[in-house]
Amino acid sequence: MSKERNVDLAKWSGPKRPYDLVKEFVIAFLVVGLLVGAISAIFSSPDEPAVTLQQWANQAPADFVATTAGELAGTTISAAYGPPYNNAAEGLKLGPLKIQKWAGVTIPVNPAVDFVATPLKFSKDPSVPAALAQWNGASSDQQLKWATDYSTALGKAGDYTKVTASDAYGPVPTMATGLLALAQSDVLDGLLTTTVTPYPSDFTKPMLFLADGTYFDDLGAKQHLHGDQWGMMNETGSYPGQSWLWLFSLWYQVEPFKSSENADIQIFALLMLLNLGFIFMPKIPFINRLPRLIPFHRLIWRRYYKENNL
């Protein structure tokens, strides 16, 4: 196989047949166009409405308050993320390679400040300014203790309305419920998107905040969209999704990746390797002999082989 065969290299000088490429394309274009039009008319396409912070605050206020306390305590996904958002962690590693860390903090996000303290300046709640002043005047150790203690109490009580008021939580409960009110009144969505320009096209902050809660996560799980549910391939509703991502999605379902903290980068690296294999497939021993070993080509060229007694 490695030796190029003359006949493969040469311009074909054997028998030919008329073949109308342009007509073939035009017919194919019309057929595909009509097919796509018909399928679209019958099945339409999915359009699950976007989730807002207001919706989250109204439908799952307990989760909203717990997540807000978590942002202040530095325990949420984005508060503990690392690059490219902050330096709270080093990020994932591929063996000794700290690629995520090396890429650096290019999209600075400080959840306690950006998601909570800054938007609270716009709160209409009369108790909020004093709470904010107390928060901003405290040491970071004190802030952390208040927020952590309140988070723990929330975890035990299950709902912020069942947590008994205590000075041990400092201004954190007032800040959290103040932010809840801000979100319920539909102000927070706008405040988080307009930090760069009042004419937004970047949803990094509201989406990081939303994804920190369990409300949004549960919505995805219900639609079978989680990474460990082969969610990468799936679409909302009963529509086909990106089934071409099967080889990417596969690795998230199996060990050692399934339980690896560094699964994302490990699978990314593996995929790069597999893509190289795909690109260079004709050069890979054995694989490049498969077409000979499993002779589908006898079917494809059956008329040719028959006419030439091969």
């Binding site: 999915p46 359009d47 699950e48 409405p49 976007a50 989730v51 690059p83 490219p84 990020g91 994932l92 690629i99 995520q100 090396w102 890429a103 650096g104 290019t106 999209i107 949803f203 989406m207 990081l208 939303l210 994804a211 949004f216 919505l219 995805g220 639609q223 969209l225 990474g227 969610g231 990468m232 679409e235 909302t236 560094n262 994302d264 980068i265 699978i267 990314f268 690296a269």
Partner: peptide
């Protein structure tokens, strides 16, 4: 798509891209 599907895919896919430094 400016809908839930986009929100979901964006929040999920960011982790893989961030881990490889592409997210930067």
């Amino acid at each position: 798509q400016w809908d839930f599907d986009s929100q979901w895919i964006a929040t999920q896919a960011k982790d893989g891209l961030n881990s490889a430094g592409i997210g930067s």
